[in-house]
């Protein structure tokens, strides 16, 4: 055991792992975190606590992760390269470990221009850091954990023991480089991988075949990403605008059909689409889990954490395995 986290245990047990996502609020309201943690608790093996996703200022991943942990939900803290240099990153990692956090997902982080979206002003004028990139960050975590050394080489009396994760966009552009991209993360020390949301299962399986061929599925646990769609509009948006995500037309048509069935009733349209989205997600979970080389799913119900329970149950992934301490 590298970290002794629940997630690590589930993966080691060979059962399909389920992770979910918890977005901390844009205010100092810890109760919001607690509320969401309660919604997720028991329905996933661990939940990602996002690190100011889309570069929007929120309760920090570490702090929210600790709040979740107190609620009995195992967190996967996220660490982006955007906001901290290697000094801050390592300091935070030491603190996180000291507070009992055991999983850490390494990310580049969305660019700060994303923070000014919709009605949000955000901080597009912020200075970004990117002192290290994801691959290097994974390497730093591994070096701290396995060698007991800081990046600079100074010794750590007590090393932080993280189950190290990294993100992967299997169908991102340029697609030829994506398997190598994963290889580098695995070589750097990624214990588990959470992928970008998958809708185009055929393409995903083609990429996974390459990964299996490279033997990477044996060296890391790949959890396929599921983004629970709420509406036809959301699917269309993701297809056109979200990098590395393509949504087959058939899926969009299904959602449209659900929407149209409600006629002019907007409330009903929303309900029907949400129901269809959940149904669709369950199908995707099955398809992903049936894909060779896959060790679990990472289900993101963005600002809709309450949906997780139903999905996990309907997908036959409930109850989640439990391990003695």
């Amino acid at each position: 055991m590298k970290s002794g986290s629940n997630l690590e245990k589930v993966i080691l047990s060979g059962q399909p792992a389920v992770t979910a996502e918890l977005g901390p609020p844009m205010s100092a309201d810890g109760h919001e975190v607690i509320k969401k943690a309660k919604e997720l608790k028991g329905f996933c093996d661990a939940a990602n606590i996002t690190d100011c996703q889309t570069a929007v200022v929120r309760i920090s991943s570490i702090a929210a992760a600790v709040l979740a942990l107190r609620e009995g939900l195992e967190p996967v803290m996220q660490m982006t390269c955007r906001d901290r240099n290697r000094i801050a990153i390592q300091a935070d990692l030491l603190g996180a470990a000291a507070l009992g956090l055991k999983n850490c997902l390494c990310l580049a982080g969305d660019h700060q221009v994303f923070s000014a979206a919709g009605r949000l002003k955000g901080h597009p004028g912020a200075k970004n850091v990117y002192d290290v990139d994801t691959c290097q960050l994974v390497g730093i975590l591994k070096k701290m954990r396995d060698e007991g050394l800081q990046e600079g080489g100074d010794k750590l009396e007590v090393a932080p023991k993280f189950f190290i994760g990294a993100s992967w966009t299997p169908m991102g552009d340029p697609i030829d480089i994506r398997p190598m991209n994963l290889l580098k993360k695995v070589n750097a020390g990624a214990d588990f991988i959470q992928t970008q949301g998958i809708y185009d299962i055929e393409l995903f399986r083609a990429q996974m075949a390459k990964i299996v061929n490279m033997g990477l599925h044996e060296r890391t646990a790949i959890l396929g990403g599921i983004i629970v769609p709420k509406s036809a509009m959301m699917l269309k948006y993701m297809d056109s605008s979200v990098a590395g995500v393509s949504v087959p037309k058939a899926l969009i048509d299904r959602m449209n059909k659900a929407k149209e069935a409600a006629g002019d009733d907007k409330k009903k349209a929303r309900e029907l689409q949400e129901a269809e989205g959940i149904k669709l997600s369950i199908e995707l979970i099955h398809q992903v889990l049936e894909t060779p080389g896959i060790k679990g799913v990472h289900i993101q119900a963005i600002e809709w954490e309450s949906a997780i329970e139903g999905i996990v149950k309907a997908a036959g992934l409930y109850p989640r395995p439990a391990f003695a301490e």
Binding site: R82, A108, G109, V113, Y130
Partner: peptide
Amino acid sequence: SKTLMNGPCGGTNKGKCEISKDVDCAWY
């Protein structure tokens, strides 16, 4: 845009950087 040294991030979209359709993705 992120001075990444080990390949593209997940933001590459049709050869362009996530920050703008007018900016080429260097890694692409």
